Each structure stands twice: as structure tokens, then as C-alpha cells.
Computed example of a mutant assay.
Amino acid sequence: PKLAQYEITLLDWMEEHKGSRKYVVFANKCWPSFQTQFGFVPCYVNSRLTAMGIPVSCEVDIYGALSEYIGTCISQDVVTLLDINNTVPNDMYESEIKGKFDYTLKDTFMGFHCGNTAACKLTSGTMKFQKIMARSLEPNVEPNITRGTLEGDIVPGEITFFRLQSNAEAELTAYVAEGEVLPVSTRSFGSIGVFAIPEMARFYRNVLIEKRYPHHGAVAFGHYGKAMYNLFRYLGVKELSFNQPKGML
């Protein structure tokens, strides 16, 4: 009931404020205070809204919400927002990826969030507790307040990983990288998938870290790199990066 009321409240707010605008996105507070104030986590509701074409970013990530909006407009499909800072275990790579797909271990990573990805983009979805917060808050502190995640492996197939951002000089920057979600069981929790992007290690080091991007990236389900690259150029993005092939220093 609390989850349903939260969703209704957001939809009512949207109707009151959107006016003549066709699209609405949310950048909502979730981690780490939401569950202690409302008695649940908002991930599942966020996933439902995103499935309706109303992207919701986690952790008040405004540029993440704008990125999701761009992905929704270009792909005309559901998008998601994921952490990009989790590695694929070496034993999983050796047993499930090596020799089956043309990627090195450093080309792969785990795209993860607590449970915000729409059910239509999961191989199967299950309502669960938010495991990270449950470890510190339940059962001894406040029981049953971290329910509300939608867990499951993300559907395999082509993806575009991208983000619009502002730097310290208030200039727009962006990156675009095409890759895929591999049909490999993650054996983990949350909304999660085994992602592969060619030259990901160099891209992570020389773009995401060196150019100070946050750990959130937007995901569109399909290859839309050319359209996004051109859109970012039209927006006047100061610095536009991509996963450069081996031959490009």
C-alpha cells in the first residue's frame, strides 16, 4: 500500500506541474534516508514509472535524469541508470565469457543498481529487500523498512552507455559508448547485468576517471551512438568522449 501511494503521489505531482510539456522526468532522493522516513525503498516504483516513459534517476542525479530523458527520446524505449564501478569476477570471466565472446576481462563490468530497472528489461523480476541497507538497519534497528527493490538480471542484447554532465567550469561534457549485455547469469542481487564494451579499461581510466564523471551512467537498449553523438554536438558539448579503438592513442 505504501508503494502504491508513493507512485500515485508522484503521478499526481506530475500532472499538476507538467502543463503542456510532453515529457516529465524525476531526480529523486533515495539513498540513504528514504527508507527511514517512509518505511520502504522507492526502487520498484521508480522502475514502474520508467517503464511508462517517465525516467527516474537515483540519488538526486539531475544530469542522470537528463541523460535518461535523452535516451528515451532517441530510442523511443525504456532506459535505465546504473552504477558502472563494479568488476566481473575473474572466475566468472574464465567460466562464462572467455572463449565464448570476443572480450577481455577488462572489457567487461557489472552494471548495477539496487532495483530501479523496469521489469520489461529484466530476464525475470522479483520483489526483494535492499540488501545493502538491510545489513545495517535490519533486523535489530528498524525491521521491514528496506523492502521495495525489483531484482533480476538485465536482458542480454545491444546497449548504448552514455551520459551528459557539467564540469567544474559549468561546461557541458558527454560520453557515448556502444556495447552489449552478455547472456551470463550474474549470481548477484539488485538490477544487474554483465556488460561488455570494447576497450572498456582505457575508456574507464582515460574518460570516466580522468574527466571526473560520476559513477552513474544511462543505458539505452540498442545501438544509438551516432544519434547521441550528433545530439551532443548540437547541444554544444565542450568535450565529447567515446571508447576509442586500440589504434587511437
Rank of each mutant, 00 (worst) to 15 (best):
A168V: 05
I192M: 09
L150P: 11
T173Q: 04
Y175N: 04
S191A: 12
T160Y: 10
G193R: 04
R187K: 15
F189K: 04
A168S: 09
E158W: 05
L164M: 11
G157T: 13
E169A: 12
E180I: 14
V184D: 09
E158T: 14
N144C: 08
P183V: 12
P183H: 11
T186S: 15
N167A: 03
L182S: 13
G193L: 10
L182C: 13
A174K: 01
A174S: 08
E169N: 07
F162V: 12
F189A: 03
E178R: 15
N144R: 12
V181L: 15
T173W: 00
V176A: 07
V184T: 08
G179L: 12
F162M: 07
S188V: 05
R147K: 14
V155L: 13
P183K: 10
E158I: 11
V176Q: 06
S185T: 13
S185E: 10
E169F: 09
L164R: 02
I192C: 06
P156C: 15
G157W: 07
E171L: 07
G190F: 04
V176S: 05
T186V: 13
G152C: 07
I145P: 02
L164F: 09
A168L: 04
Q165C: 05
A170H: 12
V181K: 07
P143N: 04
V176P: 02
D153E: 12
E151G: 06
I159L: 10
Q165V: 01
S166E: 10
A170R: 14
Q165M: 02
F162E: 04
V194S: 11
E178V: 14
G148C: 05
F195Q: 03
F195K: 09
L150I: 14
G152L: 01
A170E: 12
E180N: 15
N144L: 07
L172D: 05
I145S: 00
P183W: 11
E169G: 01
R187P: 04
E180C: 15
L164E: 01
T160R: 13
T173R: 00
F189P: 00
G152D: 05
P143I: 02
F189G: 01
G193E: 06
S191V: 07
A168H: 05
P143A: 06
T146Q: 00
Y175S: 06
E171K: 10
F195S: 07
S185Y: 09
T146D: 01
F162P: 00
S191L: 07
G148R: 02
R163I: 06
E151H: 10
F162T: 04
G152E: 04
S188L: 13
A174V: 10
F189T: 10
P143Q: 08
I154C: 13
I154L: 14
G157S: 13
N144Y: 13
V155Q: 13
L172G: 05
V194Q: 08
R147G: 11
P143M: 07
L164G: 00
T146N: 03
T146A: 02
V155W: 03
T173M: 05
G152N: 06
V155N: 08
S191M: 06
V194L: 08
G190I: 02
P183D: 15
G179M: 09
V181N: 13
E158Q: 15
P143W: 02
G193Y: 08
R187Q: 14
I145N: 00
E151M: 10
E169L: 09
G152P: 03
V176M: 11
N167H: 03
